[in-house]
Design a protein around this nucleic acid. Structure first.
Lengths: 335, 335
DNA sequence: TTGAAAGCGTTACCAC
DNA sequence: GTGGTAACGCTTTCAA
C-alpha cells in the first residue's frame, strides 16, 4: 500500500504545475492538446485517482442533494425517489437519502446529519417540521423544497398537492353511490401529518355534502399498513354494520380492511365500500379493486428535481415556485 | 444569508482556540466539563453545523458505506436497508445508496459513481456482477460484502442464504399436501438472478421428490410484481387445470396470481395452491394467506453492517466470513 | 487542560 | 497557455 498518487505526483512526472494537471484532467480548453494528452497518459500510468473529497471540500460544492422520505418501503415514495434520481443524475447531482420514519424528531436528527455533508440543496417530504429543523435550514443558504404537501408557511419552494382536497372526490363518489355513514381509518393523532390532513378533508367534504358526522378510527401510530387495517376491522367487527363506507388513509390500510371483511363474510362493496389513497399497485390488483386517489408520485419527484436544477442554475429565480399535481379518482372495478 | 459558522467562529465566541472546540464537540475527555458545556452552548446558539466534508478530507476517511439494492420499493430490501442503517449509524457511518433496478449494467454505473465518494466499504446485493464491476472493486482496497446470495466465487465477504435451497421446503410441503403438477412463475431468463436460482431450486426439489417436470412460466423482465403475476394467470387461464400448484418467485407475484384466480372463480387453495417468497406483509394479510419463505431481510442488513464494522475495526480479520441466514416456512392459514 | 503550527488535495484568483 | 499563491475547515502533532 503506497501513498495515493496526487496531482502533484502527476505534475512532477510530466514536468508541469499541479494547476495544469487539474485543468487538463477536468477538460479545460485552455490547456494545449499536447500537454493534455501527456498528462492524461501519465495519470493513467501512475494510477492516479481523482479525489472527489478534496474537490468537494475546496470547491465547497458537494454534488449532493439531500432528500428525506418518511419511509423507503412505500411504492409512492420510491417512485418519487426514482423521479428525483433520474432528473438529478442528468445534472451530475447525487442523492443523499434519509428516512425519517414519519417522525419530526427523527427528521431533525437526519437533516442535521445530511447538512453535515454540505448538500447543495435539500428536499423534504411534508410541510411540518420541528423548530430545530426550521432553524437549521434557515441558517443554510441552500434551496429547500417541501414535497407532498402544500404548507401554509413554506420554507421556500413547494411541490405538492392539497391532502384534504385530494379526498373530496372520494367522498363525493361515495355520496353519489348512496353511501352516507362513513368511517375514516388512519394513524392516531398527528403521527402521520398528511394522513391527518386527509382525515380533515374527508370530514369537511362529508359536512358539505350533508352526510352524518364521520367516525374517525385511530388504528395505531404511523406508519400504519395492511396489518393495522386488518386489525382495526377485526377489533370493530361488531360495529361494522353502523357504516356503509370505510375511507382509509392509504391503499395498504384499505387492503387490510378489505381482507378482514372478507374473512368475516362481510361483502365488499355489497355491505360496505372501502376506499384507499395513493394508487398503489395493490388497489388495482386486489379483488375487488379499490377506489383510490392517484397523486402521481413519480411526477412529484421529477418536478422537485427540475425545480432544484433550475434554482441551482439561476439562484435569482428563487421565488417560491408552487407546482400543484393533478389528483385523479379511479372508480375501480367494483368500488 | 451569512457565511457558514465554523469552529473558528465558535472559538472566538467562547474565547478558546479552534482546537479546543474541535475536541469539545467530539466529546474528547481532555476538555474540562465546564469548557465543553460553554462550547456546546455557543455552538448551538450560533447554529454551528459540523463540516463532515472537511473532516473527511483531513482524516482521509469519508464515513460512507456504499450500498446497492436492486430496488428501493421492496419491503425486504427496505428492511435490509433499515438493519444496515441502524448498525452502521452506531459507528457513525452513513449509507450512500444506489438502486440498480436488477441490472448488472446499471450496477456498474452506480458502483463507479459510489466509489468516487471514497466509501470505506461497499455492500452489494447479489453475487453476480459485470466484469467491469469486479475490476472496479478489485482495484480498491476496501471491504466488499455481497448480500442475499451465496456466490460460488465471492468477491470477499458474504451475508446471505442459498436461494435454491430456500425453495426446497416449499416444494416439500406442496408434495406432502398432495400437489404434484407444479408451475413456476418468475421473471424471464436471468433478468432476476436470485429469482432464477429459486426456479432451479424448485426444479431440483421436484425432481428429487419424484414429481413431474416443473413448468417454468416467464412472466416478463425483472422486476415482476403483482400485475405481472395477475397477467400471467390471465394469459394462461385455459391451461390452469393442468396444474395444482403455482410456485411464485415472490409474494407480490403470488398475490397477483391469487386475485387473477379469484376473478375467474378458480378456488385457492381448493383448485390450486399458490406460494410466494419473502414473507411480505401481504402474504399474511391476503385472503387466503399465502405460504411463503421468510428470509429475515432485516437480519441480513444487521449482519452485513456488523461484518463491515468488524472488518473496519480489525482489517486483519479479513477472512471471508460467511453468515448463513435461517430460512423458515410459514404454513399460512390455508395454503 | 489548552494552544500553535502545519497540512490533507484541490482549485480560485491573479500574474505572466 | 501556464504557473504561483493561498485557502477551503478540520485534525495531527508537538509544545506549553
Amino acid at each position: 500500500m503506497t501513498a495515493p498518487v496526487t496531482m502533484r505526483d502527476v505534475a512532477r512526472e510530466v514536468g508541469v504545475s499541479p494547476m495544469t494537471v487539474s485543468r487538463a484532467l477536468r477538460g479545460d480548453g485552455t490547456v494545449s492538446q499536447k500537454t493534455r494528452d501527456t498528462i492524461r497518459a501519465a495519470a493513467d500510468r501512475l494510477g492516479y485517482v481523482y479525489d472527489t473529497t478534496a474537490q468537494a471540500f475546496r470547491a465547497q460544492k458537494s454534488g449532493f442533494v439531500a432528500v428525506t422520505l418518511p419511509s423507503i418501503d412505500n411504492a409512492n415514495f420510491a417512485a418519487t425517489h426514482r423521479g428525483l434520481t433520474e432528473v438529478l443524475s442528468e445534472t451530475g447531482l447525487q442523492i443523499l437519502l434519509g428516512s425519517t420514519n414519519y417522525s419530526v424528531d427523527a427528521e431533525e436528527r437526519i437533516v442535521r446529519q445530511l447538512l453535515e455533508r454540505k448538500p447543495e440543496a435539500i428536499i423534504l417530504t411534508g410541510g411540518h417540521h420541528s423548530p430545530g429543523t426550521r432553524a437549521l435550514l434557515r441558517a443554510r443558504d441552500i434551496p429547500v423544497v417541501e414535497m407532498w404537501d402544500l404548507p401554509e408557511a413554506p420554507l421556500q419552494h413547494t411541490v405538492g398537492f392539497s391532502n384534504p382536497d385530494a379526498m373530496t372526490g372520494i367522498v363525493e363518489q361515495l355520496a353519489a353511490s348512496g353511501r352516507r355513514r362513513l368511517a375514516f381509518l388512519g394513524a392516531e393523532g398527528e403521527s402521520d401529518r398528511r394522513g391527518a390532513e386527509r382525515c380533515r378533508g374527508v370530514i369537511g367534504a362529508a359536512q358539505r355534502l350533508g352526510l352524518p358526522t364521520v367516525e374517525v378510527l385511530s388504528i395505531g401510530p404511523a406508519p400504519v399498513s395492511m396489518s393495522e387495517g386488518a386489525q382495526a376491522v377485526a377489533d370493530m367487527a361488531d360495529r361494522l354494520p353502523e357504516f356503509d363506507a370505510l375511507v382509509c388513509v392509504s391503499d395498504t390500510v384499505a387492503f387490510g380492511a378489505l381482507t378482514a371483511c372478507q374473512r368475516r363474510g362481510v361483502s365488499v362493496p355489497g355491505d360496505i365500500a372501502i376506499t384507499g389513497f395513493g394508487a398503489f399497485e395493490i388497489a388495482a390488483v386486489s379483488c375487488p379493486a379499490l377506489t383510490t386517489v392517484d397523486v402521481f408520485a413519480y411526477d412529484i419527484g421529477v418536478a422537485a428535481g427540475g425545480l432544484i436544477t433550475n434554482v441551482l442554475a439561476d439562484p435569482a429565480g428563487k421565488d417560491a415556485v408552487v407546482v400543484e399535481t393533478a389528483v385523479q379518482i379511479r372508480p375501480g372495478e367494483t368500488s
